[in-house]
Design a protein around this nucleic acid. Structure first.
Ligand SMILES: [Mn+2]
Ligand SMILES: [Mn+2]
Ligand SMILES: [Zn+2]
Ligand SMILES: [Zn+2]
Lengths: 142, 142
DNA sequence: CTCCTGAATCGGAATGGTTCCAGTTTAGTA
DNA sequence: TACTAAACTGGAACCATTCCGATTCAGGAG
């Protein structure tokens, strides 16, 4: 997943390549994974000090609608964003001690066989694991 | 799951059985499943018009900590609560059209075999399905 | 029954992440 | 270079939830 690749998608949709928009993408590419909107804003403001929250959110929403960014609600309540390549997806294991997230390879959907007696068309799903990472487990009993 | 049963648990913990607390439980028992905090408050105020949001939230938190109430973040963003009997749990299919939730029997955890290469102790999980119920599917294409 | 005390409640203010908005700037095009 | 739709800005608005100081009350001791 590289910057030019993303820009190509945006251009294909006739979207303007503003400097702010590109800087938000750079923040997602070069910063740590799973950043909050505020963290992304802070990073973007290094180069463009006047960027507003509205701009960050507007672009994150846009990128989500293009399946270029995914949003996850973490354990501590805050919402974090990360780049994702197209329709692919992954899930997370969230540490209740330090709040960090680990990407998890497991996806439950292959095991799902449809709702037994309800008429319902499934278009998406969400799966999360909660627990304690090695560090935090040692910091507590056991 | 009946009122006296819950009250027994509370008493066992030395918690006061205030009228407001009992009325919140009645709202959960007698009202529709998956109510928001505001809906619960509205129902409780029929009998106790001066109950505050603080009281509703405080009690919902308390009941969660006792595994008597579970909280779910629904598709439209609002948070809904329901009674649950002890450590048992279930998951939900959420309609993106009307916002309604259907309880789902499927739980993915029996199929989960641990994180491949990460040291992580799993203590909980979350699973949700998104899609369209029969009604809303008809109201759209297909 | 009355008294006492920690638990619980109340009303209203504060919080914080997100969204809205009116006015201004700008990317892309001809 | 001029035009226009798209995008940006700054700050206000929103709204579910939390916080807080003052007040009331449930349950137990005497
Ligand atoms: Mn991830
Ligand atoms: Mn349910
Ligand atoms: Zn999946
Ligand atoms: Zn489960």
């Amino acid at each position: 997943m590289d910057l030019d690749e993303v820009l190509k998608v945006l251009k294909a949709r006739g979207l303007n390549l503003t400097p702010q928009r590109q800087e938000i993408l750079r923040a997602l590419l070069e910063g740590p994974p799973h950043q909050t909107a505020a963290e992304i804003l802070q990073r973007v403001r290094r180069r463009f000090p006047s960027v507003s929250f509205d701009t960050v959110y507007r672009n994150l929403h846009l990128l989500q609608s293009l399946n270029l960014v995914s949003r996850t609600h973490f354990a501590d309540g805050d919402t974090r964003y990360e780049l994702c390549a197209g329709p692919e997806h992954h899930h997370h294991a969230l540490c209740l001690g330090c709040g960090k997230a680990v990407d998890a390879a497991f996806c439950p959907m292959p095991y799902f066989r449809g709702l037994p007696d309800e008429e319902f068309t499934v278009t998406g799903h969400s799966f999360k694991l909660f627990g304690y990472c090695g560090n935090c487990r040692r910091g507590r009993g056991e």
